[in-house]
Structures are given as C-alpha cells and as structure tokens.
C-alpha cells in the first residue's frame, strides 16, 4: 500500500534517528525510495534531505529505483562460494536473461547477491523475498523459478 509523507512522519516521528526506520517502511511499501516522497518527508520532519539521501545510498538494502515483484537474493557468502554458488548465479542470470542487480523486463524478478544468509550448512542458498531455499542445484533453482513464474505473477 502506498502512503503519504504525512503518514510516515506521524507513524515514526520527526527525529533524525528515525531516518532508517522511515526509509525501511517506505521501501517495504513502495519497493523503492521515491525521491519526491523522501523530500516531502524531510520537509515535514527535522531530517535534513542531504542526510537522508546519504543514508539511502549508503545501505545496500535501499534502492532509489523500482525493483521487480520478486527479489531473488543469491548467497555469495564464503560457504556458498566454496560450494559453487557462482555457477548457479550464472544459471539464474541466464534463465531470467538479466545480470546481477537488474530486473526482468516484465518486472517479475530482480536478481541480487548477498553475503551470507546464515544457512551456510545448507549451501548453496538463495532467498526469494523472505523465503530461504537451501541445497540448491541448477535443476532445483529452475524448478523454483518456474513455480514463481506460474504462481507469483502479476
């Protein structure tokens, strides 16, 4: 659901300390951080826009442009790397015809890598939205993606 700048300020408060929680809420609602909305939040609060922009670009969780409906985060942590994650990332990349940090043209998937999802003993691991999948193989990844294409589409 897309809410107004007023909502975030009322909900989270006006202090600079609320910058990250506000950005996290906007990101969760919109899927990205619209510049105009950030500016409006700053006008209505004590947060300086330069500071907010600085924070938005510092943390990898935030993005200033929209992402796909489903976000695939492939683990590129040490254990997954040692267990051949790179090969799987190439395979996913090929399957979706996008590179890492890109979004498919139909807006269904974005592909990202993260350093460790904390399931290292089930490496290689990937996460789609909030769901983690362990012991991935090329065949399993393709199967899961197919399922998302069919059931989590527009």
């Amino acid at each position: 659901m897309q809410k107004s700048a007023e909502f975030y300020v009322n909900e989270y408060g006006v202090d600079e300390a609320k910058t990250i929680p506000i950005l996290q809420a906007i990101q969760a609602d919109y899927g990205y951080l619209p510049i105009k909305l950030m500016q409006e939040v700053c006008e209505k609060s004590n947060i300086h826009y330069n500071r907010m922009y600085g924070v938005a670009t510092f943390y990898s969780q935030f993005n200033l442009t929209p992402k796909g409906k489903n976000i695939i985060r492939f683990c590129a942590g040490t254990a997954c790397h040692v267990k051949g994650a790179e090969k799987l990332i190439i395979a996913v990349s090929e399957e979706l015809k996008i590179r890492v940090n890109e979004t498919t043209s139909n807006g269904l998937f974005s592909l990202e890598t993260v350093a460790c999802l904390g399931c290292c003993s089930l490496a290689p691991v990937m996460m789609i939205n909030d769901k983690v999948y362990g012991k991935m193989t090329i065949a399993k990844v393709k199967e899961i993606l197919m399922d998302y294409k069919q059931h989590h589409g527009q």
Binding site: I47, F62, A115
Partner: peptide, 25 residues
C-alpha cells in the same frame, strides 16, 4: 529492536551506534 540495512561495517561498534542514530554507518 533495530534492523540493520545491509552494511557489513555496521557490525563495528561505532558504526553500529551511528546506524542506530539514523546516520550512515
């Protein structure tokens, strides 16, 4: 509870504090 926002350096204590204060970590 404060949720991190995806920056390894925020595990470092002074960066973590900056992050809780709402700043770049």
């Amino acid at each position: 509870v404060k949720e991190g926002a995806g920056a390894f350096v925020c595990g470092e204590e002074t960066a973590l504090i900056a992050s809780i204060e709402g700043k770049r970590g």
